[in-house]
Amino acid sequence: MVETLTREQVMAHRIAAQGLHRDRALDPLSSLGLQDSGPTARLALAARTDGEVDPVARGLVDGWTHRGAPHHHPPAERNEIAVAARPFDDADAGARLNWSGPEQRRVGIPAREAVDRAADALVEVVTEPMTKGAASGGVTKLLPDALLRDCRPCGCVHVNEQLFRLSAFPVGVGLDPTQKTLLLTPPPADWERPVEGDPARAARLVLDYLRVLGPAGPREVADFVGTSPTAFAPAWEQALPGLVEVSVEGRRAWLPAGDLDAALGAPDPDVVRLLPPLDPMLQARDRPLLVPDEALRKDLYKIIGNPGALLVDGEIVGTWRPRASGKKLTLELAPLLPLAPDARSRLDDEAERVAAARDLKLAGLTGQAGV
């Protein structure tokens, strides 16, 4: 018999599984990591822990992983993620590179070979910490013209950006975000470069996604990784024996079998949190389920300049934006509806956490019409 989960149960389960109750030892979401953009990772940690919110101080390492975006990961996960980031074949590599059929024919080099060529060049070039521009320039000199692009913003020709990013982590090239200018870092001395993509090990991504963003299906997981469901099917098939099917809003979805009871009995999501843009909660690919209100969903998921999400007792009920002036921070809130007095009182503590995570002093909250 297929269990049915309501949308409210799904939200409660995700909130608990992601540690947003602050009631468990913090797990930096294993192989999913924390996407890093400005203070995003610090604020995501502040929403989940009373402890250290600096990813570097917590010992996390940074690299271009899922979708070619920078993510913080536990060091112990680094090699496993490198294997998962290695395309299985040309179809998978082409999907991760966002190459259409005509683009692949224009390039004239199989997609996975292109990734390997760029990876070889990165290993040769990045032998010490260096800026992205310096690394890109060095790699560009080593690649055939077919793998280069005329970049209007840069006013020059250089290696295709997504190819550059997706080639880095499998060969151990990471990122150092602690300097004023982002630096690429050389592979660790003991780095083992994956020769082939391994669906059995990539199945770990499937399980981790479903553990914290499930129930979901193969399309959502593949989209998170940055490939197509067809290309990522080998990893899904490897994970499938450990999954259980459920029904959510009339659609089929899956959870790790050991998480079903937790989802059915998730605690009341009685938390107020100021989630930053790119927060793990917002990484769910079933966005209409996560944020049913279309206008709010469009506001949260812009191409650039996304606001944060206001999470109140199991629902995303609005947005927030930081306004910094000197060492002071004001948070501008935009709830869909007036917030209850209890929610408003709990927001004060969360706003203080946001300011502290950014090493600023909270000046106040604005934009709370009717609160």
Rank of each mutant, 00 (worst) to 15 (best):
V2E: 00
E3V: 14
L5F: 01
R7F: 05
R7I: 14
E8N: 08
V10S: 07
A12T: 06
A12L: 01
A16L: 14
A16E: 15
L20P: 03
R22C: 08
P28R: 09
L29Y: 15
L32M: 13
Q35W: 13
P39D: 13
T40A: 14
A41Q: 08
A46Y: 02
R48Q: 10
D54G: 03
D54L: 07
A57M: 11
R58A: 12
G59P: 05
T65A: 11
P70K: 14
P75D: 07
E80M: 15
A85W: 09
A85I: 10
D89K: 01
D92H: 15
R96G: 13
S100D: 03
S100A: 14
G101P: 11
E103K: 15
Q104A: 12
Q104M: 15
V107Y: 04
G108L: 15
G108T: 06
I109N: 09
I109H: 07
R112M: 04
V115P: 08
R117M: 14
A118Q: 00
A119L: 11
V123D: 09
E124G: 00
V125Y: 05
T127D: 09
A134F: 08
A135P: 00
S136E: 11
G138D: 01
T140Y: 03
L142F: 05
P144M: 12
A146Q: 11
R149D: 11
C151M: 12
C151L: 08
G155A: 00
V159C: 03
Q162M: 14
F164V: 07
L166W: 13
S167W: 10
S167F: 06
V171P: 11
G174K: 06
D176W: 04
Q179Y: 00
L183T: 09
P187F: 11
P199T: 05
A200H: 08
A200S: 14
A202M: 05
A203H: 03
D208A: 10
L210W: 12
L213P: 00
G214Q: 09
G217F: 07
G217K: 01
G217N: 10
E220P: 09
V221Y: 04
S228A: 09
S228F: 08
S228I: 03
P229T: 10
P229W: 06
A231S: 08
P234D: 04
A235V: 04
A239T: 14
P241A: 06
L243H: 03
L243R: 01
V244L: 06
S247T: 13
V248A: 07
A253Y: 10
L255E: 06
A257P: 00
D259K: 04
D259Y: 08
D261V: 13
A262N: 07
A263Y: 07
A263D: 11
L264C: 02
A266Y: 08
P267L: 04
V271I: 00
L275D: 09
L278W: 15
P280Y: 07
M281H: 05
Q283M: 12
A284I: 13
D286T: 08
D286G: 11
P292K: 02
K298G: 14
K302F: 02
I303W: 11
I304S: 14
I304A: 12
G308V: 04
V312M: 02
V312D: 01
G314P: 12
E315K: 13
G318T: 03
T319E: 04
W320Q: 03
A324D: 08
S325T: 15
K327L: 14
L331M: 07
E332T: 15
R344G: 00
S345R: 15
L347W: 02
D349S: 15
E350Q: 02
E350R: 01
V354C: 01
D359N: 08
L362P: 01
L362T: 00
V371K: 03
